[in-house]
Amino acid sequence: MKNLYSLLLLSFLTFSCNSDSDGETEPTPEAMYFPPSDGSNTWESKSVADLNWNQNAVQPLLDYLELKNTKSFIILVNGRIVMENYFNGHSATTPWYWASAGKTLTATVTGIAQEEGLININNKVSDYLGTGWTSAPLAKESMITCKNLLCMTSGLNDALGDDVSPANLQYVADAGTRWAYHNVYVKLQDVVAQASGQTWTNYFNTKLRDRIGMTGGAWINSDGLSVYWSTTRNMARFGLLSLNQGKWDGNTIVNSAYFNQATTTSQNLNQAYGYLWWLNGKSTYRLPGLQLQFNGTLIPNAPSDMYAALGKNDQKIYVIPSMKMVIIRMGEVANPENPTFALSGFDNELWDKINDLYQ
């Protein structure tokens, strides 16, 4: 009798834990999926119908993407592929450049190096590179920290082009007093290389790329800057890592506390900027090349909790935690008459089409 009573009690407790107040069983939340990190092409999928999204909105979205010079487009929900489409001669195996969307790779690896005790982002850049890495007066150069490079607040002149040689890194304002979008952030790659005693590529590959299966991607030198190239699925892998705040299938790739800092307003000059990540849902924002502050949110049609890696010619990684969603877009510039370095009008137009899928 005692055994029967125990069995009935266990059954009741199990039922209670999986039922709502009306006695109806609640569905178990779907687990986050991670594709294998062994370089295989295996990746679970989920259909638009499975999500009860609007199938009638799919083709207008695809037509728009093709019209806007898109090469590839992926939507992940809970890590699973919901849409994966290629256009204009591109394929799943063709690499394409990330442009400035790859800044977030540098921010992530910088966090890994800090977690390993190799660097401290609050330290001066010159602690790792020595003095004279800019042409600023020594006292001004010594004010620039690694965090300033992550936040785009180096105070160096952003109007002199992509060249980051010392002669082209000229003082404009004290570090921390001026926000300006500047390729000087790549000096963080030199910092990591110097502190680790490895090449940047080797450290990046072993600490990030290979651990999440971004096989085949590579840094390629372009006009003095290293630009990352990879397949679209590899970009999606990094987006999935970012959605999970630096964790990959139970393994910590980058400390979640650091990643949270990276995707939170990092300074008081541009609310919409973290550590090389763009942040939606803020009340004001600044844009590359302008010393102006704009009122309103960065991408009004997009979810307010979204953070994004944005690159020249409309390379996009959108990460939306509230929807457990990652969206990737690679391609040529969407609106050739209005090319931009990062954010463009295309972002808001695209989100108008995406919203039709599920609203």
Rank of each mutant, 00 (worst) to 15 (best):
N301P: 00
S266R: 05
T264R: 15
P303D: 10
Q267N: 15
N270Q: 12
N270T: 06
L276Y: 07
L287C: 08
Q291A: 14
S283H: 01
Q267T: 08
A262K: 03
A272E: 05
P288A: 13
N295F: 00
G281S: 06
L292M: 14
Y258E: 06
A262V: 01
N295Y: 00
S256I: 05
G274Q: 06
F294R: 10
S283F: 01
L292A: 14
G281A: 00
G289N: 03
W278N: 04
N268Y: 08
F259E: 07
N255K: 13
P288Y: 11
N295C: 01
R286F: 02
G281V: 01
G281K: 00
N270C: 09
T297D: 09
G296S: 02
G296K: 00
R286W: 04
Y275H: 11
G296N: 02
L276V: 07
T264C: 14
A257G: 13
S266T: 04
F259M: 14
G296D: 00
Y273K: 08
S266C: 13
S256A: 15
Q293H: 00
N301G: 04
T265H: 03
T265D: 03
S283C: 02
N270S: 13
P300R: 06
N280Q: 05
T297M: 11
S266A: 15
L290R: 15
S266H: 04
A262T: 02
Q267G: 12
S256E: 14
T284V: 05
Y275F: 14
L276F: 08
Y275P: 08
P288I: 12
L276T: 02
S266M: 07
Q267Y: 08
S283N: 10
Y258H: 02
N268F: 02
T265P: 09
I299A: 08
L292K: 15
A272F: 06
S283Q: 11
K282F: 02
P300V: 08
L279G: 12
T263K: 07
T265W: 01
L279N: 10
G274T: 04
Y258A: 07
G296I: 00
Y273V: 06
A272S: 15
P300K: 04
Y275A: 01
S283G: 02
G289T: 01
N301L: 01
Q291L: 14
T264L: 15
Y273A: 10
R286M: 15
Q293V: 14
P288D: 13
L290W: 10
L287G: 05
T297V: 11
